[in-house]
Design a protein around this nucleic acid. Structure first.
Lengths: 235, 235
DNA sequence: CGGGTTGCATAGGGCTCGTTATATATGTAG
DNA sequence: CTACATATATAACGAGCCCTATGCAACCCG
């Protein structure tokens, strides 16, 4: 099939980015050679250097193309369940209970990048921008959710988003080391505390039955999905 | 300066372990060669292989020798301040407000190990043991603290410890990317919520000047609330 | 004091990796 | 149809790495 040069170039770039994200997440950045990425993309290392200049360039491009914000996507999907606690549980299910899924490897890639950012200012800057945007988005989602459910979180939206993300991140890390020590109930308990939800009576502890009723199918999910998401990835 | 062989051996082993922990934390495990560790310890790579067999062996030995449990040490030191909120603040100060200190680099090493554990079962097992022990210890400390202060945390001791550690870990990660987005007040707010402490008056929202310390016997906090600058190091 | 042992140094092999320089083939313009 | 531009392949270099084999001096013990 005849392809214009621009088309071929764009496809190659996309393949390289996808393969890079995939392999970096899977084996770790240092565990993947440039040739391995190129081969996974059906190209050779020459293409990588023509497009990104260096392995680091490829890494930064992967980071940049990576619009997936765990929290944002999460809260967009959550609206389907309609009990508040059930929604919190769904949040954890999506972030922490998915061994082998995409979110699983994205979380590994995120840590990989975080660790690198701790020593490489260039990576740090790229991560910082992404982080700020994500925090703003999920702050909005969270406050919207809180007012709909009628609870009073312990902090203002962006601060709250930071706390929630911190808790979820930490729990997910812990779960990877000791899966048994973290379950959905625990995550819901922690999230509920941060969201300022009333605590269940000490003796009667059953979580998911609260009847709050008021979610249509999608107010949250349709309202303001990310404003500039254009690159969609898959594997 | 005659030394017995056992003494010499033990000293070499100690030096290698210390140098390994230091360099692994500083430059990342993959960023450090066996020769670099040996040289930092005043030995050569031969010593490393005589003692540990491989680089991985050295890594596991470093992990094993690393008894430092952040949370445990934390709560042991905390008892000096005596206002409850001040104590929570001290916890964060120790874990999250220490650029350039030992706890700073230990936290990097911990992440380094965590990431490796996600792909290497051998490392995962070693981390798991350490994690379980740490959770038990800090669970005890936490429940002791809670009953002394007279609050009712949101979960049983070990669960609570998991939540607290998760929150602190997540906040510390976030702080490294965007230092401005995480401060002591935020950490205290989150911790207080998990500990089940009463919230500041519901209607009059106040940004809370952290009210710390009632009486103090010894100055434990480095009072480094102004240090927002990123110290960076290299050798 | 002397042979055996121990603890570590020295030297280098074999391999992988990031990067560059050059070749090739395909699209593009005149 | 020709001449150039572009996208990617190919090949090779030099560096750095982990690890092994071997040497050697310092200790140990009778």
């Amino acid at each position: 099939m005849a392809q214009t040069q621009a088309e071929r170039k764009a496809e190659t770039r996309g393949r390289l980015l996808a393969a890079g994200a995939d392999l970096f997440a899977d084996r770790g950045i240092d565990g993947v050679s440039v040739d391995a990425v190129a081969e996974a993309a059906g190209r050779t290392s020459g293409a990588v250097y023509a497009h990104f200049g260096s392995k680091q360039g490829l890494l930064l491009a992967v980071l940049d193309a990576w619009k997936q914000s765990v929290l944002t996507v999460l809260f967009a999907e959550v609206a389907i369940t309609d009990s508040p606690l059930g929604q919190l549980a769904a949040v954890w299910d999506n972030i922490g209970d998915n061994p082998g899924t995409d979110s699983d490897r994205w979380s590994l890639l995120e840590h990989e990048l975080w660790l690198r950012a701790a020593r490489d200012p260039e990576v740090a800057n790229a991560l910082r921008a992404r982080s700020a945007e994500s925090r703003r988005n999920s702050g909005q989602e969270l406050s919207r959710w809180a007012s709909k459910v009628g609870v009073d979180p312990v902090a203002e939206p962006e601060k709250l988003a930071t706390l929630v993300k911190a808790l979820l991140t930490g729990l997910e890390m812990q779960r990877r080391i000791e899966p048994g020590s973290v379950d959905g109930d625990l995550a819901v308990t922690g999230l509920a505390a941060l969201m300022g939800m009333p605590r269940p009576s000490v003796d009667g502890r059953r979580a998911t039955a609260s009847r709050r009723r008021g979610t249509e199918t999608s107010e949250v999910s349709r309202s303001s999905r990310s404003s500039r998401t254009q690159s969609h990835r898959e594997r």
